[in-house]
């Protein structure tokens, strides 16, 4: 994991591109929805998560590209000890990357759409945190699987998106409530579902990653 973070820190390759991508997304949202503020406010939770998901797909899809391009896949396979450590490391790296991108997106949304997100921020952080863990947990697992497959850029989102429906529904609903100024208690059932999904996804990821990295 430290290697990935170090690499990312040195090159800033993915992060720069993702930042630019996030900016472009905002443009697209603005152009497709028009200047109507009411409509924008109504669609905001969905737009926010659309931004997270799209940039997450791009970011996570690249999670194992470094290994493939530099022929280090075999090294990963040969790595001594528990393979699930590699999974946890990759997951942590991906989480950090996604959190940074999400923070940037939040700021961009606030600035460009002239929104005051600050009062809802603590609750928003909880929702986004829970949702991102679930997304990244399965995303990391699938990224490892699709790295070695034909048409991987296509297959990765095609596999990941249907599986992420529960997380998506829960986060969008919870974000909507939070942005309307409701307390977290009002959406406790969604948060519980997210927490359950996180636990299940991470557990399945840790348990099955061994099999993905076999050959």
């Amino acid at each position: 994991m430290w290697k990935d973070l170090l690499l990312e820190h040195r090159s800033k390759e993915t992060l720069n591109a993702l930042f630019f991508f996030a900016l472009l997304l905002l443009f697209v949202f603005q152009f497709t929805l028009g200047p109507d503020r009411e409509r924008l406010a109504g669609a905001l939770p969905g737009l926010l998560w659309l931004g997270f998901i799209l940039s997450g797909l791009l970011g996570l899809g690249r999670a194992f590209v470094v290994e493939r391009e530099n022929d280090c896949w075999e090294a990963l396979l040969l790595a001594p000890g528990d393979k699930s450590a590699i999974y946890v490391g990759k997951l942590a790296g991906n989480l950090l990357l996604m959190f940074i991108v999400e923070a940037m997106l939040l700021v961009l949304f606030g600035v460009f759409f002239n929104l005051d997100l600050v009062p809802a921020l603590p609750a928003l952080v909880v929702v986004i945190g829970l949702g991102t863990v679930g997304f990244a947990a399965i995303g990391t697992l699938f990224a490892a699987m699709t790295t070695q497959v034909r048409a991987r850029e296509l297959l990765f989102p095609v596999l990941l998106l249907p599986v992420q429906v529960p997380v998506l529904l829960a986060t969008v609903k919870a974000t909507e409530a939070v942005l309307l100024g409701e307390p977290l208690g009002a959406v406790a059932h969604w948060l519980k579902l997210l927490a359950a999904a996180d636990v299940v996804y991470v557990a399945v990821g840790v348990l099955t990653f061994d099999f993905v990295l076999e050959g």
Partner: peptide
């Protein structure tokens, strides 16, 4: 890989079920 996906998908069924109902 298919086996891993088959397991993930199965665990996901109850999650999908509850989230969609809510």
């Amino acid at each position: 890989y298919a086996a891993v996906l088959g397991i993930v998908a199965a665990f996901n069924i109850p999650l999908v079920h509850f989230s969609v109902i809510w």
